[in-house]
Design a protein around this nucleic acid. Structure first.
Length: 936
RNA sequence: GCUCGAGUGGUGGAAUUGGUAGACACGUUGGACUUAAAAUCCAAUGAGCAGUAAUGUUCGUGCGGGUUCAAGUCCCGCCUCGAGUACCA
């Protein structure tokens, strides 16, 4: 019988569907949760790079199931957010429609590959019965504050109680942005608006009015991790600073826990490192400088208080809060000019402008706390408002930026480092110096001076040790249509949340869902977007004059709101009473292995950890980390084709090829290029419009086609569609080939030519079962050799799957089948076990043969074979005999021999004698079971 | 700039953690089958040198040193590429 993969795959996919094979529920068995990062259905469809992680996780899930675990392996769609909406806008359709279409396409493509997903648990973040809970979590955050004393989130009512009882006594330290203090009596007398404003400083979801990253093209605000190199991650559009009222999540309160708990989880070290850098903890000192002729003080944050005597100026950020209080009115004009100049700069300008130094003198001076000297105060945009205190002390001798600044504006550069030349650049090392010109710190090194200065600063009560984080609060508002509405309404300007029982607050239908350049949210286009507080429902805007009807927040949530907690919903996706029942949570607990790309390191993977800890604090979750182990799959790179001008050719590419012009090469679709890198010019010119109009003549003499490896993408004309591979070779071959390509976490190029190796392997395996097209198995006791081959393979496969080294698994299968083919093995015992072994990798293939050899039940729950040591015991070893470490020949010896016996045999060996040629060896090293080395 | 990660045949990649470098594949070459092609099967395949040949021999894991009986693997110093980050005081 022939290996007819198309028929087989269809048959078994239907069988699994009909028998609900992959539907799981709570059982007596131990659980195992294998999770993939769910896709956002983008419209371009899948290419062979997408399923890489899914295949690995599927193999692992099926393997764990064979091992006796009750495996939860769900899948869903991250269907809200920018990608889905951008696609809808591009194609001029409603996002609801395109999302549904894209999901259908994804599903069709995924189904062909034979995944063992439990689709009965499917979730979509854009479905009301899902986002109901996303909104619910938001209201929890709105109604919570972070208690520093207990180091956890608590309900806001506790804070209010404390204010009513003790004023701000207990939580005074947390009122960082508030200038005034209040007693319990004063609190009670505050009006609602003031109370609300004060509480906003505490709420974990809060509204604020600060500057945000604004993207004109996308018509929305973006979070820091959505900006790459000063442009938007989606689409690469410019980003500017803009003052917008927006919601934020106070993730910064969790900085330390997010950092510390990285030690608890088995995630890839590079990824943890990225999170550590993003959180950016640094220890230092905050220090107050008096300002001459002013009540205001300037507080700076520094990690180098030891260089305090090197301070020759202070610099504050252009957005510094007390800017006008600390600057001289004489300099007003220059300052305002400078502020204007800075504000027009986009994020990208600022980045590309890092080298150039700009700033303006405030006209006033601060007083050095130890030397008493007058220090000029400057304004410069190299200082960031959002980090530290928004002000820095300028130490040109010890910091390159301060050095450059001082040079540019001709400020003092006092040297405080003995014997060190700072005429060309600053000296920023923490070792290898002794201080000078530093009064009581003279002669000390970094460590010692640090200790002295900190105690001096604390004695003088002008500052204290401080830990500073780079991690900022997460901007939560999007001025977009396709996202979860934020369940907040404004009662007399005071934000109130819609209670959980009235959720979901459903996304309204609007005629125009396009984003606007002025930042108005498309939800404003709805004429039914007001909250009737009395009847607890959404009503017409026209009723807002009514005392009980109030406007609803127009912004929607960012894409990561829905993806920050979705892995819990899978456990109990149908539950409409709770986001997840205690019972299901107790059983499924957490994710055992999470597969996904490292590009989410500082986005999704950080936000979801924050959500986890928050919900843990409020006792909704039982663990404070959700994924024990994480595997980053690498990318599969596509072959892009470029036409280059050969050197010496004076001919240029035609100007008509505008869209494809990149320097002196042209990108073309890889389908026009054959394996010899020859371009099919005729077809290219016929099918490609741009080439059709081009005056460019391809000529092998003047141009050449070169392949380059890049990320697969439709726009790069280098995608390979998994459907085509399934048509031609079958899903099992695709699955195995993707794994065979290389280590899962590595990026590796796709080469369709290589697939034939895996395909013919499966065919060879298949043919072990047949003779002259008829199933022919013997029931005899298997031969020693075949048993050895099998058990060697079982051992290797089991070890490698656990390590997720799946590429070497495929090699082992090939070796085994090669060996069995050579042995002409058609033994049932051997082949049956081998089928179970390979079933996670090539499930359709294994099911088919399993049933053909007479099994009635699916192979899916068959016990995974275990190796028996007795078949692996070697009695002999082919020892390499090396001379000075270089192997000259091998000798087959019994493993029972001891060192002396081996040495004797080797030395009397005729080859040894001839190589030694009467020279007496200096030393003979024998490592039993490994090697023999003769030292001359 | 800083922080990670990686450099092994023509290509993708193996290497029990210090013990026969190049497993397993692709590709290439030769052969078998075939009128022919496809498919399949067999053989060779790191480079160089010597030999008709079996074989022998030298060099070989980015570069330069070191430790060791033995280094792709460990240590020191460089180079190149990739990823992340970017005025974080």
């Amino acid at each position: 019988m022939k290996y007819n993969f198309l028929e087989i795959e269809k048959k078994w996919q239907k069988y699994w569907r009909d028998n609900k094979t992959f539907q799981v529920s709570i059982s007596e068995k131990p659980k195992y949760y294998v999770l993939d990062m769910f896709p956002y259905p983008s419209g371009a469809g899948l290419h062979v790079g997408h399923p890489l992680g899914y295949i690995a996780s599927d193999i692992f899930s099926r393997y764990k199931r064979h091992k006796g675990f009750n495996v939860l392996h769900p899948q869903g769609y991250d269907s809200f957010g920018l990608p889905a909406e951008q696609y809808a806008i591009k194609t001029g359709q409603h996002p609801k429609k395109t999302t549904q279409e894209n999901i259908d396409m994804y599903r069709r493509q995924l189904d062909r590959i034979g995944f063992s997903f439990d689709w009965s648990r499917e979730i979509r973040t854009s479905e009301p019965n899902y986002y109901k809970w996303t909104q619910w979590i938001f209201t929890l955050m709105f109604n919570s504050f972070y208690c520093k004393i207990e180091n956890k989130a608590k309900h806001i009512s506790e804070l209010i109680n404390s204010f009513e009882k003790d004023g701000d006594n207990v939580y005074k330290n947390e009122l960082e942005n508030l200038d005034y203090s209040f007693t319990n009596e004063e609190w009670k007398n505050f009006n609602d608006k003031i109370k609300s404003d004060i509480l906003m400083n505490f709420r974990l979801a809060y509204i604020t009015d600060g500057e945000v990253n604004w993207c004109d093209e996308l018509g929305t605000v973006l979070a820091n991790d959505e900006i790459i190199n000063g442009v938007s991650e989606r689409g690469g559009y410019p980003v500017t600073k803009r003052k917008v009222k927006h919601w934020c999540l106070r993730i910064s309160k969790y900085s330390d826990r997010l950092l510390e708990d990285l030690n608890k989880i088995d995630w890839p070290e590079p990824l943890k490192e990225m999170q550590r850098n993003w959180i950016g903890k640094s220890k230092g000192v905050s220090l107050k400088f008096e300002v001459e002729n002013s009540d205001k003080k300037i507080e700076v944050f520094t990690t180098r208080p030891d260089t305090i005597f090197g301070v020759s100026f202070l610099t504050v950020a252009p957005e510094y809060r007390d800017l006008y209080d600390i600057s001289s009115s004489k300099n007003r004009k220059e300052i305002e000019d400078y502020l204007k100049e800075v504000s027009v700069k986009s994020e990208r300008d600022r980045l590309s402008d890092v080298k150039s130094v700009s700033g303006v003198f405030t006209g006033s001076y601060a007083i050095h706390p130890f030397s008493g000297k007058k220090i000029p105060i400057w304004i410069s945009d190299y200082v960031l408002v959002s980090y530290g205190t928004g002000a820095v002390m300028g130490v040109p001798a010890g910091d390159q930026r301060d050095f450059d600044f001082a040079k540019k504006f001709k400020l003092d550069i006092p040297n405080i480092f003995d014997q060190i030349d700072i005429s060309k650049s600053a000296f920023s090392d923490k070792t290898g110096f002794k201080l000078m010109n530093s009064e009581f710190l003279n002669g000390y090194d970094y460590e010692t001076s640090l200790e002295i200065i900190i105690s001096r600063i604390e004695d003088k009560k002008i500052g204290k040790s401080k830990i500073q984080y780079k991690l900022r609060d997460a901007i939560f508002s999007r001025q977009r249509y396709w996202g979860e509405p934020i369940p907040i309404y404004y009662k007399n300007d005071i934000p109130k949340n819609i209670d959980a029982i009235h959720l979901p607050l459903k996304l309204p239908e609007v005629d125009n869902f396009l984003p606007t350049k002025n930042g108005d949210s498309p939800l404003g286009n709805s004429n039914e977007w007001a909250w009737d507080e009395k009847n607890k429902k959404v009503t017409l805007n026209s009723k807002i004059d009514n005392v009980n009807v109030f406007p609803i927040e127009l912004n929607t949530m960012p894409g990561w709101a829905g993806s920050s907690w979705y892995f819990y919903r899978y456990m109990d996706s149908k539950n409409d009473k709770k986001f997840i029942s205690d019972e299901t949570q107790s059983y499924w607990s957490d994710v055992d292995v999470y597969f996904g790309g490292s590009e989410h390191a500082t986005g999704h993977l950080l936000y979801s950890r924050f959500y986890q800890k928050f919900l843990f604090d409020l006792n909704f979750l039982q663990k404070d980390e959700y994924a024990k182990r994480l595997v980053n799959q690498g990318m599969i790179l596509g072959n892009s084709a470029f036409i280059y001008r050969k050197s010496g050719t004076s001919e240029y590419f035609s100007k008509n090829l505008i869209n494809n012009i990149e320097f002196d090469r042209i990108r073309i679709d890889i389908k026009y290029v054959n394996t010899e890198n020859e371009v099919d010019i005729d077809r290219l010119k016929k099918e490609d419009k741009e080439f059709n109009n081009a005056s460019f003549h391809f000529d092998n003499e003047k141009f050449e086609c070169i392949r380059e490896q890049e990320k697969m993408s439709k726009s790069k004309f280098n995608v390979v569609n998994p459907d085509e591979i399934c048509d031609q070779y079958g899903a099992d071959t695709l699955r195995m080939y993707e794994m065979f390509l290389g280590p899962i976490e590595q990026s590796k190029p796709w080469d369709t030519r290589g697939i034939s190796g895996v395909y013919s392997f499966l065919k060879r395996f298949w043919s072990l079962f047949f003779e002259d097209d008829k199933l022919t198995l013997t029931e005899d006791i298997p031969s020693e050799e075949s048993l050895k081959s099998l058990h060697k393979t079982i051992k290797k496969i089991t070890e490698d799957i656990e390590k997720l080294s799946l590429n070497t698994c495929i090699s082992s299968f090939m070796i085994c089948v090669n060996e069995l083919s050579a042995l002409k093995c058609n033994n049932r015992i051997i082949l049956e076990q081998l089928l179970v072994l390979i079933s996670p990798f090539a499930p359709h293939f294994a099911e088919e043969l399993w049933s053909q050899i007479g099994n009635k039940k699916s192979i899916i729950d068959e016990k995974y074979p275990e190796f028996d040591k007795k078949y692996l015991i070697e009695s002999e070893k082919n020892y390499p005999v090396s001379f000075n470490g270089k192997t000259k020949f091998t000798i087959n010896l019994s493993l029972e021999l001891d060192v002396n016996e081996i040495e004797k045999i080797v030395l009397s060996n005729e080859k040894t004698i001839s190589i030694l040629n009467n020279v007496k060896p200096k030393k003979v090293i024998v490592v039993p079971g490994k090697i023999i080395n003769i030292v001359l």
